[in-house]
Structure formats: C-alpha cells, structure tokens
Design a protein around this nucleic acid. Sequence first.
DNA 1: AGGAAAATGTTTACGAGTGAAATACCTGTT
DNA 2: AACAGGTATTTCACTCGTAAACATTTTCCT
Lengths: 167, 167
Amino acid sequence: MEDAVAEVLRQWQRVHPDLDTLPIAVIGRLTRCATLLQQAADAPLTREGLARPEFDLLGALQRVGRELTPTQLARETFSSGAAVTKRLRRLEERGLVERRADERDRRVAHLSLTEEGRRLIARLVPEQVGYEASLLSALGVDRQRDLADVLSELLVLLEGRLGGVPI
Amino acid sequence: MEDAVAEVLRQWQRVHPDLDTLPIAVIGRLTRCATLLQQAADAPLTREGLARPEFDLLGALQRVGRELTPTQLARETFSSGAAVTKRLRRLEERGLVERRADERDRRVAHLSLTEEGRRLIARLVPEQVGYEASLLSALGVDRQRDLADVLSELLVLLEGRLGGVPI
DNA sequence: AGGAAAATGTTTACGAGTGAAATACCTGTT
DNA sequence: AACAGGTATTTCACTCGTAAACATTTTCCT
C-alpha cells in the first residue's frame, strides 16, 4: 500500500527530473501526518467543547503543577501572547482557570486551574492519551519509538538553528 | 542535547506516573516539528509574497502538468473547496493562474498556470526544495530516509483509518 | 530622584480557514 | 417536458491566530 505523497513525488520527479525530492518526502509527509493527527486526535477534546490549544493550556498548568503567568504560558504552549490572552478569557469564563494578581509587580497575573478545571483535565488527559495511543497502535510500539527518536533529533536541530528558546 | 518535548514528558510522568507517554512523545514532537518547519521553510516563498498554501496550489498545477478544476485542486492540496476559492481569487488577481470555462458543463472551471505563473514556480520550486534540504541537512541523508519511511507507514495507517480519499 | 528603556499583558485590525447555506447547473427518470 | 436528486463552485457568518500598537508598570542608569 502506498501513501498519498508517493504519487506527488513521482509527479515532481517527472517534471523536474534533476530535483532531489527527499525534502518533499520528509516535509510533505510530516505536515500531512500532523494535519491528519490533529484532526483525528481531537475527538475526545471536542466532545468536551475544548479546542486543542485550550487543552494544551490547561495541560500546561496541570503538568507544571504551579501557577503560571501569561508569558510563561505562551512559552510553555509555543504560542503568542495575544493567543494566550484570548484563550484565557474563554477558559476563565468557563470557570476552568482563575487569575490571581501579583502583589509585588502589578503587571503580572498568576493563572491556575480551578477545582473544576483540575477535575476536567485529570479526567481528560488519560482519555486523550489513550485515544492517541489507539490511533498510533497499528504502527507498533517499536516503530513508534523509532519515530519519536528521529523526530527528537530533528527537533533539536530545528530549535537550535531557528534560535532556540532562551530561558 | 535534549529537545523541548523531553521536559514535558517528564512533567507528565511526574503528575501521572501510570500514564504511557509514548503517544505524547510521538504526536507532540510531530506537531512541533511541523510547526517549526512550516515557519522556517517558507522563507523563500515569503520573499516572493506567496503563502505556503498558495505555493502548494501553484505546485499542484505544475506537477500534474494539466488543467485542474477547483474540486480537483482541493483534493490535490488537501484543503476545503472554500479555501481553494479564496486562494484562486488572489492568484488570478496576481496573474499567476487563469481560468477557462468548460463548454460542456458550465459549472466547472479549468485552472492553469499563466506564463508568468509557470516562470515563477519553475524558478521557485528548486529554490524552495534546496532550502528545505539545507534545513534538514544536519540530520543526515540516511536519517532523513528513515524518517520519510516511518512517516509513510504512519500516513498509510492514518489515511486508511480516517476514511481515505476514495477515487 | 528622574527619565529613558524594557517588560507584561491586552486591544485592535486584519487575513485566512471552516462548515453550512446558497447558487447554478446537469442528469436521469417518469 | 418536468421534476427530483446530485454535483461544482461560490458566498456567508464565524472563529481563531497574528503582528503591531497601546497602556501600564518596573528597572536601570546617571
């Protein structure tokens, strides 16, 4: 069985016979897999009325286990400050996240999960990860580990090259 | 050297000691790599005032080597019909793509590259692919092939499971 | 102390994608 | 011929992310 990118590679090869198509094979498949996974993997979230970026934000608060400022949340979820502001508004309105003012520096806010947010995320994370595992299961655990390892290598290189995240 | 996801995995492990984090290792890294690559890899395109999805559309016309209808373009670029409509409007305004009416069925349109579009894409594709190759080069060609192979396996599985594209 | 510079967070204007509805057209059946 | 049903494409209303501008507050330097 052949994937959807194989035909694309053949087409490019025919039009540009001298072109090295390896980058397309890697990047094309990477972005395609990411798109499909993001669509598919969000089913448990969507049932709870959460979008993936909102889930990521809640998850960040859960996994670091302490309050975070909006800027820290932006770093932690690899997103812009403006995006975090918008997501926080929705999550605060839903009562999943609460805000505490810093008494020393009046610019900064400290965000934490409410009791309800904690309950939701504690229930949702195992469900979500389990569902993701089932999506990947056909690949076999060893093959998944191979994939995670190569991707980790690539990630180090990309983050280094593109000006990694300074602390 | 460690990638940005490794710390996230440790944090989850500490909060949910019984959680199998392999799916996060795979999917988290996959989406993070895809994001970084898409930001980084678009530099040559951006210089020409093209967005990635517009480039993909032009590329599809170039590599199949014949006219395509909007619906075929949507399939070919994995996007929705509405998105194709919007992109076509911009590309037609820029004179890179032209439209021919079907004389038999007056609903359908046939899109093709203009001479200018052909010139642009013929120049841009080798430049773009070369730039992508340089982004990946630190990984080594063999490792890139490994990656492409696992991703191809995964893609087959995902496309099969998520209701692949019937002809 | 005092003002420039930097940092934090929010707001704003805008562009792009989406699903659903709308539009226009074709095809087959009666 | 007429109509039901299906297809191709566009439009619409909406959501979300972004970059840039903004307001506020702190820090730094002299």
